[in-house]
């Protein structure tokens, strides 16, 4: 994949992320988030992690974003543009996050990694093998967690009569 594809993708991530946290309409925000996630999936492809990119699109864009849209639609009049969406502490928040960003930029620009060692890209078979051997126990725990989240969501979301 062309190296030059990275920068448009990165730019798209930054722009849509900025929009996603500043826009008034929450529904739009969710869509901007979907764009951010799609761009990040592209970056994963670029980083020799095609499986992760696919998962990103499937789980995030296909699942979570859909969930967000449902939630927004269920909570009715949220998309009303008249309502202010930003709290009163946006000025100090902006200052603090700005400072944090400056600090990080300064640090990364002053401390480059001298010698990156690029290894052979991982194949899907290797990844699967790895997941089922070295990381078998966490993998099972993740499945348990997902089950618990599902059950919990049903219980909490049930309308009590």
């Amino acid at each position: 994949m062309s190296e030059m594809l990275f920068y448009p993708l990165a730019a798209s991530v930054c722009i849509f992320a900025g929009l996603a946290v500043t826009q008034k309409n929450v529904f739009h925000c969710a869509l901007y988030l979907a764009m951010v996630l799609l761009s990040i999936a592209g970056i994963y492809f670029y980083l020799d992690a095609p499986f992760l990119g696919v998962i990103q699109i499937l789980v995030y864009v296909g699942g979570i974003i859909t969930l967000f849209v449902f939630a927004i639609k269920l909570t009715a009049h949220i998309e009303d543009k008249v309502i202010r969406q930003t709290s009163q502490q946006w000025v100090p928040s902006l200052m603090i996050t700005g400072i944090l960003l400056c600090v990080l930029f300064r640090f990364f620009s002053q401390n480059p990694w001298a010698n990156p060692n690029l290894g052979k890209p991982t194949t899907l078979a290797q990844l699967g093998n790895f997941l089922m051997t070295n990381y078998a126990v966490p993998f099972e725990f993740i499945s348990l967690l997902l089950l618990a989240a599902m059950v919990g969501a049903i219980v909490i979301g049930k309308v009590k009569k």
């Binding site: 709290s87 502490q89 100090p92 928040s93 603090i96 996050t97 944090l100 600090v103 990080l104 640090f107």
Partner: peptide, 22 residues
């Protein structure tokens, strides 16, 4: 909660600045 979070983030930022010696 967001007020608390703001203060918390502020503290984390200070911590990072200290750790990175900036």
């Amino acid at each position: 909660v967001q007020n608390y979070l703001l203060v918390q983030v502020f503290g984390v930022v200070l911590l990072i600045m200290w750790l990175l010696k900036i």
